[in-house]
Every structure is written in C-alpha cells, then in structure tokens.
Design a protein around this nucleic acid. Structure first.
Lengths: 175, 175
DNA sequence: CCTACCGATCGGTAGG
DNA sequence: CCTACCGATCGGTAGG
C-alpha cells in the first residue's frame, strides 16, 4: 500500500503478499477500508501519546523539543511503510472517519506548537510558535519515510540528532 | 488527480471536470498515463531549468542558495496541484519513463547539493553539502503544496523568505 | 465530441 | 481458508 498507494493496491495484491486467496482476507478484516483506517489511527494514537507524555513531563521547552523530535523520528522509523501511509494516504480514509483523523493530526500539530511557543516565550527560540514554523519543522522530519531503511547505517537516534541540529541552528556557519 | 491520487481519479472523473464524455478525452490525449507523465516531466523540466540558470549565473553560493529557494517556491506555488502530483504521484509513472524521471529528480537534488557544498567550502554553511542536508532542505519547502492557496495572504516571495530564514538560521534565538 | 460497448479488474459475498 | 461468482467500474475502442 505504501508502494502503489491505497487505490493502486488491490485486495488480490494484499492477499498475494500474505499468500492466501483474496476472499480469505475477509476472515481477518471487514473491508479494505479497515486496513487503511487501522494503520492511520494506530499511528495517530502513537504520535499523540508520545507528544502527550512529553508535554506532561517536567522539562523545559528546549528539552521537550528535543524529546519530541526523537519521539517523532523513532515512530516514523519503527515502521516506515505504515508511516508513509499515515502521512500520504490518509486522505483516502472513509469520509465517516476522516474528520476524526484530521482532528487528531491537528491536535498533534497543536501540541508541537505549544512546545515551540513556550520555548519562544522563555527565550529559547524565535519565530517558532506559529503554524508555519510547526509545519516546516514537521515536514523537515517527515521526508525520512521516503528514504529510511532499517538496515541502513544511520540509526533513528542519529537521524533525530542531525535533524535537531538542523532545525535549531540551520545551515549557517557559526562565527 | 491531486485530490484522490492517480489511481483514485478515473477518466470519467477527469471528463466530468472538463464537462465532456470520457470517450471524448481520447481526442485530446493518448492515454491516462500521458496526463501524469506530462505533468511530472513538465515540472521536472522547470525545476531543472531554474536550477541550471542559477548555477550558471555569477553569484556566490549564498546568493545562489537564496535564488534557488525562491525559484523552488515560485514553481511550487504557481501550480500547487501539478506540484502535488509531481511530488507525490510520480511513482505511478509508467515503468518505461520512470527511470528517466527519477534521474531528472536526482539531477535536481545534485545541483542543489553542489550549491550547498560550494557554500560549505567557502565558509558560508556547515553540514550542508551532503544528501541528508539537501533532502531535509527540500522537504522543509515541499510541504507548502499541501497548504498553499493562491488567494491566501502570503505571497510566494514571502514564503520563500521565511523558509530561507528557517533553513539558514533555524529556530534558535540569536544571542 | 457523442453513443454504445468491450474485456479486465475491482471490492466483496455465498457456500462450503 | 478455498472455489465460484456477483455487480460495478475501470481504461480504452469502434464508428459515426
């Protein structure tokens, strides 16, 4: 589903991947919809639980920010295929559940914004506590699902460290 | 096609959008494939022409970088729907042309890397002339296709300026 | 640019 | 978990 997209992946493709007949899939799931729905909502729950945990801990905004980047990258890398679906195939979620999904995603972005906004107020960051900044930050992390391979030479923690440096300091050489 | 993806958009959908019958579309294009192919390759040409022009100009790496961000954002904003297809639906391009498309995209990334690498050598940037940095930079710009509306209050040039600031200096408050 | 229609494939069900 | 099969829809063609 991450390879050919939701509509490009048939139940027969999925069935072939698990080496059974298409009709037999329906003993395990209700409809094709459900696979997408479950994948997207499971990840949404993970991200929200992660950011919720960080928000509630006794850390300053800078520490929270660092923890959030690590959490975000760890979840993405733990299952890049599922994460790809979560990031780019969510719009095919059944109309009935789409609003709830979007609201969870908005909640996550909002929690991120709170951390950056608090960090700005307390003098850690600048130009950080607005939607534009939050989406730029998230996007600068999310590309790794199109590239990361679990057997590669970079571990999630290293990726998170590099991304943290980039987001905090940019490319400009320190003087 | 940007809304429901390549496979989720039927020839009948496209026909309805231009208010003719599906069969009549075939007087204008050869196959469904072609719409995707033309959209993706046209944009690839634009990006390559843009970065090629900048590379050949008599500018220092910092000026080239700024020009490249503006060029990239301008092209994205000029047609966000086509850009969305270019960024996220390209993988459905016919196998026959896919390799050529990927090679053009790689060329573009390489040209960007050259600018950042030259800037690093000349003391403008740090940790900039590698693939990881280039993909992070590109990704931090590309999210705008999921969000930008031509009638919004931010012009492409303003977006490009904000993104340039972010990419160069990050979120950290200057001391 | 249309009507009429093709074979292929889709998601899903019946019945075992 | 399978065989057999359904109606719907797909990309595309014939013929005008």
């Amino acid at each position: 589903m991450y390879k050919r997209g939701y509509n490009g992946t048939s139940m027969r493709d999925i069935a072939a991947a698990v080496e059974i007949e298409a009709a037999s899939l329906y003993n395990h799931i209700g409809q094709k919809d459900d696979i997408l729905k479950i994948t997207c909502f499971e990840l949404a729950e993970k991200f929200l639980a992660g950011i919720g945990d960080i928000a509630s801990r006794d850390l300053n905004p800078m520490e929270k920010f660092r923890a959030a980047v690590h959490m975000h990258v760890e979840i993405l890398c733990a299952d890049v295929h599922a994460s790809y679906v979560f990031l780019y195939e969510w719009k095919h979620i059944n109309e009935q559940f789409l609003a709830r999904f979007v609201s969870m995603r908005d909640q996550y972005e909002h929690a991120f914004k709170e951390i950056l906004g608090a960090g700005e107020k307390q003098g850690y960051f600048q130009n950080a506590g607005n939607k534009f900044a939050v989406l730029t930050v998230l996007s600068s992390m999310n590309w790794i699902v199109q590239w990361y391979k679990p057997d590669g030479y970079m571990h999630p923690a290293e990726i998170a460290n590099q991304l943290t440096d980039f987001i905090l300091s940019g490319l400009l050489k320190e003087k």
